[in-house]
Design a protein around this nucleic acid. Sequence first.
DNA 1: CTCCTTGCAAATGCTTTGCATTTAT
DNA 2: ATAAATGCAAAGCATTTGCAAGGAG
Lengths: 134, 134
Amino acid sequence: MEQQPTTQLRMTGNRQVVLEVLRSTKSHPTAQDVFMSARDLQPQIGFATVYRTLDWLVQHGLAQEVYRDKDGAAHYDANVARHDHAICNRCGKILDVEAPLHALAYAIIERASGFRIDWHATEFSGLCAACADE
Amino acid sequence: MEQQPTTQLRMTGNRQVVLEVLRSTKSHPTAQDVFMSARDLQPQIGFATVYRTLDWLVQHGLAQEVYRDKDGAAHYDANVARHDHAICNRCGKILDVEAPLHALAYAIIERASGFRIDWHATEFSGLCAACADE
DNA sequence: CTCCTTGCAAATGCTTTGCATTTAT
DNA sequence: ATAAATGCAAAGCATTTGCAAGGAG
């Protein structure tokens, strides 16, 4: 008999809180950001748990790591669909955008390099609307 | 009288060595990689100097930081032209590619978001030819 | 001579890990 | 009951910084 895959998904209180924090924002928080928000709902939570939980969420397809900033801090997103980001050089804000990179591009690059592509992410940089206005 | 900008460019021995190391490879080395190669040519060089020099090269348009890996380590490239990368999920190799993202895309995204784009980089992931063959 | 660069070591910041305890199923 | 999750503190890396000494112009 096969083991039910759902048996593997232990959705504990901490995990619910972390996922809830991640789903309640579009700001692409770092692990530290998530930790601080999670602590408001779950005061005894430790930061190691947040790191482990974020890894777990990524491993189980409930979140993705979308960006690493200049400090090397990873930024997370509960939106697991493939999409791209525009990062403001002044304020650091991360906007979701969709780069119109045609699927044909995969074939072109694969033929030229032999690389088998299964994912891509485009990162735009410049100034967000608010910073460009100043 | 204006100060000549060339006066600012002190190309010291260390800087020449670091730039030479960077220009002699297409492997997109980390700062630690550059440090180890540089030490072969310049035994007394310290790693802090390599970090400072890489920053300096980037600041002066002689190199760019192209990628941050899972460990948060920055990878550098002496090729300062805009180009994209394909990173193998198995061996970690970084290939140069050119994503055919049309300039029109900038206008579309700028109109939709108000973001003023001045750069972009696309990161592909999957398997390189060697790893895909196994 | 003066400012910039360098080497060393210590400090920093993000993240991971060991271990004993608690918790979900 | 049993295997996994948690909290805490300590350890790990990549990177940065303070400072005194060395080097370029």
